[in-house]
């Protein structure tokens, strides 16, 4: 660290500089530092402190900016009652208003189905890894979960497309998008559940075994029961994560402006795709308003899940 550039800042003479014998006659700066090493070190310390505060502020600026923008531009859409009851049928880009209920319901239905498939697989996989697995199979599973957690959403979507549409010739649909989301959600559920199961003290398992309780009852009624709130939290955060995913919808679930409950046939309305729809004409004030309104609605849903998840985690940890 004691390079020439560091010397410019009069403080960077850290411990090693203070003891380093100045080779061939100390420079003026070095002499000053040696005479007053405490002061220069204190200055470095203050500089570092300022830099860290600065980093934090730099990180906060975009967050405030983004949330501020979305709220400012979107909030008045949310105050109209049509927003929560209507859909976008017969509403063109240059028409004002319309509702988002179709997209809200669609998004909730889609992530609901996603969770229904991903949660059992994810939780059971975690149970296998923590309670049953050892040896090569467990290592293999753990490795593939890692791969799955790194898969870009667009690749997951391409895979489902390749299977669902290209290979089986089934059309794009909400359900196809759900399947892609399942791939993205499984690793989140597995990893968070695994963490929670590992936190369950081994003494509890032994206590149950010593009472003559079969292993599976022990896992279900003692281990999973003890880790329950943590698992729920992980599931909610997983749902929040896939709820905002757009790429799979773009490829697998084309948007419709109508109410649509059928996840298996035809186009399907979702909030991200509603945003995407109006994004095309965001120069028009009417479309831009809807776009921000839908974005704010989506953020609120995601935040709501996050808050509920964290609250459950908090309550659960207090009990311990």
């Amino acid at each position: 660290m004691s390079t020439a550039t560091d010397r410019r800042v009069p403080g960077d003479a850290a411990v090693d500089d203070a003891v380093a014998p100045p080779g061939g006659g100390p420079s003026r700066d070095a002499l000053a530092e040696m005479r007053n090493p405490q002061r220069s070190r204190a200055v470095t310390d203050i500089v570092a402190r300022v830099v860290m505060w600065g980093a934090f502020l730099v990180a906060v600026v975009p967050l405030v900016w983004i949330l501020g923008t979305v709220v400012a531009k979107g909030v008045h859409m949310l105050t109209s009652s049509t927003w929560w009851t209507g859909n976008q049928r017969n509403i063109n880009s240059d028409d004002f208003g319309g509702g988002a209920r179709h997209a809200i319901e669609g998004t909730l239905q889609m992530v609901g189905v996603t969770a229904l498939i991903a949660v059992p697989i994810g939780v059971l996989t975690a149970v296998y890894l923590v309670e049953y697995g050892r040896g090569p199979l467990a290592r293999m599973i753990s490795f593939t979960v890692d791969i799955l957690s790194g898969i870009p959403s667009i690749v997951a979507a391409l895979f489902i497309y390749a299977v669902w549409v290209t290979t089986f010739g089934i059309g794009r649909s909400g359900f196809a998008a759900s399947l892609a989301l399942v791939l993205l959600m499984i690793p989140v559920v597995v990893r968070s559940t695994e963490e929670m199961l590992k936190l369950v003290p081994n003494e509890l398992r032994e206590a149950a075994y010593a009472l003559g309780v079969p292993k599976w009852v022990t896992v279900v009624k003692v281990v999973l029961r003890t880790a329950f709130s943590g698992i729920i939290t992980g599931v909610l955060l997983g749902i929040a994560r896939v709820m905002g995913e757009t790429a799979p919808l773009l490829i697998l679930a084309p948007y419709t402006k109508n109410f649509q409950r059928d996840l298996f046939n035809g186009n399907f309305p979702t909030l991200p795709m509603m945003i995407n729809q109006d994004r095309g004409d965001y120069a028009l004030a009417t479309a831009a308003e809807r776009m921000w309104g839908a974005a704010l609605t989506l953020i609120l849903l995601v935040l709501l899940l996050n808050i509920i998840g964290r609250a459950i985690a908090h309550l659960g940890s207090v009990k311990k």
Partner: peptide, 25 residues
Amino acid sequence: RIGDRLFGGAATLSGVIVIVLVTLI
């Protein structure tokens, strides 16, 4: 026990599903 076989089997199956999915991708 049956319960143990079923539950342990389901857990193993889920793990295997994950492997199969990634391989299929």
